[in-house]
Every structure is written in C-alpha cells, then in structure tokens.
C-alpha cells in the first residue's frame, strides 16, 4: 500500500492512528489505518460515500470504540472525555436545535464545552457571519446558514484539533470560499484540521490528502504529488488509479467503487 511517512523533523503528531480497525458484523468499515497528522495543516479525507470516512472520524473523536488498534489525539488515547473539550467536531448533519435561536444554540454548545465567556460565542458567530442573526430561530434559517451555525458550534471553544465531516455540503460557492479561508487561518494559528469530503475539486485546498476507499487509506500526499505519482491530470483519475492498484484479487473491477468520487 502506498503510504507516505510523516514529514521528517516536524512537530509531534496532533493525531495518531495505529492499526485502527472498526468492524460492524462482517463489514470492516475501517480497515487497518495507520497515520500521523501534524499541527498547523489541513488534511483532506477523500473518498466515495460509504468508504469509511465518517467512521474514521468517529474513532478519532472517541465517539466510536475501535475494534482493534489505537487512536491518539494530542498525545491522549481516545476515547477520552476530557480531551473532547479540545476537539471540535462538525457533524455531517447540522446537529443544531431548530427551535432555539442562533445565539442560544451557540451558547448551549459553548457551555457544553465549558466555555462561559460571551465573547467566544460572539466571535464564533462573527466568523461564520451570523452575528446579526443571533436572535433568529434556527429552524427559519436557510440550509447554508444552518451549516454556518453548525460550524460556529464546532469551533466556539477554539479547539486545537478540528474534525469537519463534509462541511461544505449544501453550501453555496461564495460561502465555500469563505469557509476555506477560515479553515486556512485556523491552521495558520496552529490547529490541526481534518476535513472529509467526496468532492474532489475542494481537495486542492488541503495541504495533504488521504484517499480513503473501503476503510483503507490507499494513498497520501499533496494534490500535486498524488496526480504526479498516478500520472493523471485530475485528482479524480488519480483516485481511480490508486483504487485500481489497491484492489485485491476477487474485489470488484478497478474504479467501480469510486463511482461517488466526482
């Protein structure tokens, strides 16, 4: 399996996975994943729907228990309840309360994280450009606004490690640019950011990509690096190429599993 070593001489990893396995019955949703992710970088988990990205994030955040292997965040073995206060997790669904106002949602999640300062809530709402909607009832917001609120709730405690599960789904292109600009500024501030996506055209905004297929990391590197190694012009083709290489005898034909990777 092509697997790059972490950059030499870098700071200690913020996130470390060693032989992570998660099975549901006979399905191996996460299949022997090992990697180190260092602070200050944006990592993209790329793969089709059902390839195990969300399960991998849930193992790293301690929301699911690994069948075998270990996950560490900031040097602590997950699951660790204490460490959750230093992790931001934007779930795939919005996960906000529709009957509460924007401000109430942000304040509620802030207090769950143990943040009491009103300034933190205001700052988070300002970042996602919802400060002037703080009194609006969440259920009346547009889909994109709800997504922004969801992001605000995930970063309200200014965590050093952030997992974003498909953060830009349903978000319009303009806002998407804003989101990525914000992710970049967080990374520059030293945060480790893991973004999952099945949209390849977003991938080049990440410092490093991890191609995920059938629960395995089949390739890792920067977008340019991966294209070059695969000898393809697009990341999509590169994914198909790596997926083909990773197919064991008896698996479906190369590329068939990557149908969702646009």
């Amino acid at each position: 399996m092509p697997m790059d070593a972490p950059p030499a001489g870098a700071s200690p990893p913020a996130i470390r996975a060693v032989g992570l396995v998660k099975t549901f019955g006979t399905i191996r949703a996460v299949d022997d994943v090992t990697f180190d992710l260092v602070p200050g970088r944006i990592y993209g988990l790329l793969g089709p729907n059902g390839s195990g990205k969300t399960t991998l994030i849930r193992l790293l955040t301690g929301l699911a228990r690994a069948t075998s292997g270990t996950a560490e965040v900031l040097g602590s073995r997950m699951p660790s309840r204490e460490l959750l206060g230093r992790i931001g997790y934007m779930t795939q669904s919005d996960g906000v309360y529709p009957t509460l106002s924007v401000g109430e949602n942000a304040r509620f999640f802030a207090s769950m994280y143990g943040v009491t300062a009103d300034g933190a809530v205001e700052e988070a709402l300002r970042i996602v450009d919802l400060a002037d909607r703080r009194a609006s009832i969440t259920g009346t917001l547009s889909g994109g606004q709800r997504r922004r609120l969801s992001l605000a709730c995930a970063i309200v405690h200014q965590p050093p490690v952030i997992f974003l599960d498909e953060p830009t789904v349903g978000v319009d292109p303009l806002l998407r640019v804003q989101f990525w600009g914000y992710f970049r500024s967080l990374a520059q501030g030293g945060a480790t950011i893991v973004v999952s996506s099945h949209v390849m055209d977003e991938a080049d905004r990440c410092d490093e990509l991890l191609f995920v297929r059938a629960g395995r990391v089949i390739a890792r590197g920067s977008g340019g690096d991966l294209r070059q190694r695969a000898g393809t012009a697009s990341l999509e083709d590169a994914f198909v190429r790596f997926a083909g290489e990773a197919v064991a005898p008896g698996d479906p034909a190369p590329g068939s599993g990557a149908g969702g990777a646009r």
Binding site: T61, L63, R81, L84, G85, Y89, S93, G95, Y113, A154
Partner: peptide, 14 residues
C-alpha cells in the same frame, strides 16, 4: 435522529 446527540457526545458532557 437530528444529529444533536451525536454532536453532544462530541463534547465533554456526561
């Protein structure tokens, strides 16, 4: 079902 429990469990709440 609304995903808020999942998010809640991602916080240090017991």
């Amino acid at each position: 079902t609304g995903g808020t429990l999942e998010r809640l469990m991602g916080t240090p709440v017991t």
